[in-house]
């Protein structure tokens, strides 16, 4: 059996948000949508302040509240630990979003194509062609259009439909090819780790062995698949010092 787990080494994270960028590019998420988000937190009053960073992907909980409440079974838990959304089945009731204590769900409030046109560079545009010389072709990853897993459902990123819920997939389309999720692959300081925890010899098992770790909001009993090492959970005094883009 395989069970995927992500580990976040908070001693290493420097809050550069390269993972956020990688996620956006890999999954083509629209404006103001952050499947991966890194909190930049501050505590205390100047000059006695403490800063910390906290990457927050979907926690892929083993006892996921979002899976429980979905009225149509579009949000489901796979045997390998991934919590995924069937974009063909979701009806857009957004119950998963209110049930999730981590705030990782994002709804397609607009037609994603329209939202894209406003913030993506239209490389196909004839006006832009002379500038790029056509060397940057508009690219769409065909993996996103494939059905994934033994259950054969449309679950990977970029399948954005108006009125449908979406969230981090642990890059299911990459993981199934034996690749790492985009955020993990990109992290310049190796703060993010990913792998099969059931496999004793896997790098993640070795990394987590004999280490103190915590999960976010452990007390809720959601049992997340994301494990944090080398830090402390955010206290209630922590405040986010900058807000990401919020306009859809």
């Amino acid at each position: 059996m395989t069970r995927y787990v992500m580990a976040v080494d908070l001693n290493r994270c420097q809050g550069c948000r390269a993972c956020v960028e990688a996620c956006k590019i890999e999954n083509n998420t629209p404006s103001a949508v952050f499947w991966m988000h890194v909190f930049r937190l501050e505590e205390g009053e100047y000059p006695d302040t403490k800063m910390s960073f906290l990457p927050r992907p979907c926690q892929h909980c083993n006892n996921a509240p979002c899976v429980k409440v979905c009225p149509v079974g579009a949000r489901y838990k796979r045997e390998d630990g991934l919590v995924l959304t069937d974009f063909d089945r979701c009806i857009g009731c957004r119950y998963c979003e209110v049930a999730c204590p981590y705030g990782v769900n994002f709804f397609n409030w607009r037609n994603p194509d329209e939202a894209w046109d406003e913030y993506q560079v239209p490389f196909d545009d004839p006006d832009l062609m002379p500038v790029t010389g056509g060397v940057i072709p508009s690219y769409k990853n065909p993996d996103h259009d494939r059905l994934h897993g033994p259950e054969q459902r449309l679950t990977s990123g970029s399948a954005h439909f108006k009125g449908v819920m979406e969230k981090c997939t642990f890059c299911v389309h990459r993981v199934e090819q034996g690749l790492l999720p985009a955020c993990v692959d990109t992290c310049p300081v190796g703060a993010l780790k990913f792998g099969d925890i059931e496999d004793e010899g896997s790098p993640i098992s070795t990394f987590l062995r004999n280490k103190e770790s915590f999960q976010l909001l452990e007390e809720l009993g959601t049992d997340p698949s994301v494990v944090y090492v080398g830090g402390t959970p955010p206290t209630s005094h922590a405040r986010e010092i900058e807000r990401p883009l919020t306009g859809v």
Binding site: A32, V33, F34, H37, G92, R94, E97, V98, C100, Y102, G103, V104, N105, F106, F107, N108, W109, R110, N111, K162, G163, R243, P244, T246, V248
Partner: peptide
Amino acid sequence: GMAATGMRDLGTMGGAT
């Protein structure tokens, strides 16, 4: 799309869904 409503995502978007 439902962007025409006042609802937005919880979390980073700071709305009510």
